[in-house]
């Protein structure tokens, strides 16, 4: 196994709002409660969960697009959360993000060429003709003609914009790309093309990926390891094949059963989705999943389960009393 590049430990982000008059109540939304994981060089790490589980917040917090409340994030031994000024700027070059919505991720009044050359200028990587040459090469790398340089975002389709977004992330030669639901806003036919492009780039450039998604089939195809998030916590983690095929945590099992099976012959009865995801403003005590869990035991509603390693070498672990 290669060396770890990104280590996240105990990451936490709460959103606090005051509501009500004359007696204001403080509402604390525990979007990310306690997240720890490690990404190795060249690895694609998946973060999956239902919408609202805090996976996007976690991704943004480790990039410091929002400031986390607690925890540590270490990039190759360097503390990301305390970095300032030039050090932070240098760290930002190493980690880039690709967004879910290709329609809002590009400045509508900036030409594609300018959008690709601006980061090179900011980081002093290339100027003028050299920058333009590099921008053109990047466009070709993501499968767009260099003529697109002088065009504006509204002239492109969603899939093309997503390719431009990827090219822009590559302008600063990052080593890790955080892909926040990168294909979920795209048509299914386009999804595959964009996924193939990212897979290709990953192999060619040796990129690491943090791949945030709710789509298990996409994650299974793209990722080496995967963590399942529920209400701001990781409930299970391990190799993608193991976690998605033979999950240990009841929640991960539920997700697996709910995701569509490509082979109609193997499709069973309707997936068993029990209950709704509780509000992160008012999480249940004990194991956050116990109100929806078919295996819930008395202790589940009182004691937070610890982390249990899965059997076998490097098979990850789970936070569940069933296995504890």
């Amino acid at each position: 196994m290669t060396a770890p590049v990104l280590i996240v430990e105990g990451l936490r982000k709460h959103f606090v709002a005051k509501k009500g008059f004359p007696k204001p109540r403080t509402i604390r939304v525990r979007a990310v409660e306690d997240i720890s994981f490690t990404i190795h060089a060249g690895e694609a790490f998946g973060l999956v969960g239902e919408s609202g589980c805090g996976k996007s917040t976690a991704a943004r917090a480790l990039l410091r697009l929002i400031e986390p409340d607690a925890g540590t994030v270490t990039w190759k031994g360097e503390n990301v959360l305390t970095a300032k000024g030039a050090a932070l700027k240098a760290l930002r070059r190493r980690m880039q993000i690709v967004f879910q919505d290709p329609y809002s991720s590009l400045d509508p009044r900036q030409s594609i060429g300018s959008a690709l050359m601006e980061p090179m200028h900011v980081h002093g990587l290339a100027e003028g003709q050299e920058a333009r040459r590099r921008a053109g090469a990047l466009l070709e790398e993501v499968g767009l003609p260099p003529a697109a340089l002088d065009r504006f975002p509204h002239e492109f389709s969603g899939g093309q914009r997503q390719r431009i977004g990827i090219a822009r992330a590559l302008t600063v030669e990052p080593e890790l790309i955080v892909a926040d639901e990168p294909v979920s806003a795209l048509d299914v036919s386009v999804q595959a093309q964009v996924l193939l492009l990212m897979q290709d780039l990953r192999k060619r450039r040796g990129l690491s990926f943090l791949f945030v998604s709710h789509d298990l089939s996409v994650v299974r195809w793209f990722c080496d390891r995967v963590a399942v998030m529920y209400l701001g916590r990781i409930v299970e983690e391990g190799p993608a094949g193991r976690v998605l095929a033979n999950p240990m945590h009841p929640y991960a099992q539920m997700l697996r059963d709910a995701s569509p099976v490509p082979d109609p012959a193997r499709r069973g009865v309707l997936p068993r989705i029990i209950g709704e995801i509780p509000s992160a403003a008012n999480p249940p005590p004990g194991c956050p999943f116990h109100p929806r869990c078919v295996h819930a035991m008395p202790q589940c509603s009182q004691v937070m389960p610890g982390w249990t390693l899965a059997a076998g070498d490097n098979q990850g672990g789970v936070a569940c009393h069933l296995h504890g």
Binding site: R60, L63, L65, L88, K89, R92, R93, M95, Q96, I97, F99, Q100, D101, S104, S105, L106, D107, E118, P119, V122, H123, G165, R168, T171, V172
Partner: peptide
């Protein structure tokens, strides 16, 4: 997202 992208790009 393009504002966030700009911040992420340093």
């Amino acid at each position: 997202a393009f504002v966030e992208a700009g911040r992420a790009l340093g």
